[in-house]
Amino acid sequence: MKFGVIVFPGSNCDRDVAMVPRDLLQQPTRMVWHEESDLSDLDVIIVPGGFSYGDYLRCGAIARFSPAMKATVQHAERGGFVLGICNGFQVLTEAGLLPGALMRNRDLHFVCDRVPLRVERTNLPWTQEYQGGQVITLPIAHGEGCYYADADTLKSLEDHHQVLFRYSTPTGEQTDAANPNGSLNHIAGICNRQGNVLGMMPHPERAADPALGSTDGIHLFKGLLNALVGTR
């Protein structure tokens, strides 16, 4: 199973996330420069966090036009798996792979913290290693992580069970205090209808190694790997 991590000018989480499949899961992993257009050797493409192209214009607005992202869109359309984390989530919405947009945090401050998330759905490869309703803790670090979509889009997301993670209290409740950025419906991560594209603001790679004090994030990668290996 081969993973690829896209590297944009301004990426700063690419090496962090590459460490998970390469070192912790022992899977072939390569760094993909943003100018590459042939990603046909990859099974999973990860769009990492950071500040792609310096976040000029809007977060992810320039990255969407890169050759690597055009190839990523084609990969997703063929059913390939794509994971966008933090800035990567912003890039996926700009590229049209996921609905909605990420806006300035409610209090207009950059937030760096560890937050509880409630797992909403477990019948997809991304979340099959979790339990429904389980509360996990993952780090966040963003200034524009407030998920926004119009009412019809939000209804469609809920109707099709596309919300995989929500900000919550440690006991799984949704309160204003437990929503670090003001995201509508407490949304922290969503998938497309097919379930092969996932975007999330929290960083699972920062909670994947026991040396970091938490392994809640590694199960996302393990679940995906086990599902893909099982289909081979």
Rank of each mutant, 00 (worst) to 15 (best):
residue 2 K to M: 02
residue 3 F to T: 08
residue 4 G to M: 01
residue 6 I to M: 01
residue 6 I to Q: 02
residue 7 V to S: 13
residue 8 F to R: 02
residue 8 F to D: 02
residue 9 P to A: 06
residue 10 G to T: 11
residue 12 N to W: 05
residue 14 D to T: 09
residue 15 R to D: 11
residue 16 D to L: 12
residue 19 M to H: 13
residue 21 P to T: 13
residue 24 L to Q: 04
residue 28 P to V: 10
residue 33 W to M: 05
residue 35 E to Q: 13
residue 35 E to K: 14
residue 37 S to C: 10
residue 37 S to H: 13
residue 38 D to I: 06
residue 39 L to A: 09
residue 40 S to F: 00
residue 41 D to P: 01
residue 41 D to T: 08
residue 43 D to Q: 14
residue 45 I to H: 07
residue 46 I to R: 12
residue 49 G to S: 07
residue 54 G to T: 06
residue 55 D to Y: 02
residue 55 D to F: 04
residue 57 L to T: 12
residue 62 I to M: 11
residue 66 S to Y: 01
residue 71 A to Y: 13
residue 72 T to M: 00
residue 74 Q to E: 12
residue 75 H to V: 09
residue 76 A to T: 02
residue 76 A to V: 00
residue 76 A to D: 00
residue 79 G to Y: 10
residue 79 G to E: 12
residue 79 G to C: 11
residue 80 G to F: 07
residue 81 F to E: 00
residue 82 V to S: 11
residue 84 G to S: 04
residue 86 C to D: 12
residue 86 C to E: 08
residue 87 N to I: 11
residue 89 F to Q: 01
residue 91 V to L: 09
residue 92 L to E: 08
residue 92 L to T: 10
residue 92 L to Y: 11
residue 92 L to D: 09
residue 93 T to A: 09
residue 97 L to A: 13
residue 98 L to T: 14
residue 100 G to F: 03
residue 100 G to Q: 06
residue 101 A to M: 14
residue 101 A to Q: 09
residue 104 R to S: 02
residue 108 L to S: 13
residue 109 H to K: 15
residue 109 H to A: 10
residue 110 F to Q: 06
residue 110 F to H: 14
residue 112 C to I: 12
residue 112 C to A: 14
residue 116 P to N: 13
residue 119 V to P: 03
residue 119 V to L: 04
residue 120 E to A: 01
residue 121 R to E: 11
residue 122 T to R: 03
residue 125 P to A: 04
residue 125 P to G: 04
residue 129 E to Q: 15
residue 132 G to E: 15
residue 132 G to W: 08
residue 132 G to K: 15
residue 135 V to L: 06
residue 136 I to T: 03
residue 138 L to E: 10
residue 138 L to C: 12
residue 140 I to F: 05
residue 146 C to S: 12
residue 148 Y to Q: 15
residue 148 Y to G: 01
residue 151 A to S: 15
residue 152 D to S: 13
residue 153 T to G: 05
residue 156 S to C: 05
residue 157 L to A: 00
residue 158 E to S: 02
residue 161 H to S: 09
residue 162 Q to S: 07
residue 163 V to T: 13
residue 164 L to T: 11
residue 167 Y to Q: 07
residue 167 Y to D: 07
residue 168 S to C: 15
residue 170 P to V: 08
residue 173 E to H: 09
residue 176 D to H: 00
residue 176 D to S: 01
residue 178 A to H: 00
residue 178 A to E: 00
residue 181 N to L: 03
residue 183 S to E: 06
residue 184 L to W: 09
residue 185 N to C: 12
residue 186 H to F: 12
residue 192 N to T: 02
residue 193 R to E: 11
residue 197 V to R: 11
residue 199 G to C: 08
residue 200 M to W: 00
residue 200 M to K: 00
residue 201 M to K: 00
residue 202 P to C: 12
residue 204 P to W: 08
residue 204 P to E: 04
residue 204 P to G: 04
residue 207 A to L: 08
residue 215 T to M: 10
residue 216 D to W: 00
residue 218 I to F: 04
residue 218 I to W: 03
residue 220 L to K: 06
residue 220 L to S: 05
residue 224 L to D: 13
residue 224 L to R: 14
residue 226 N to H: 11
residue 232 R to W: 10
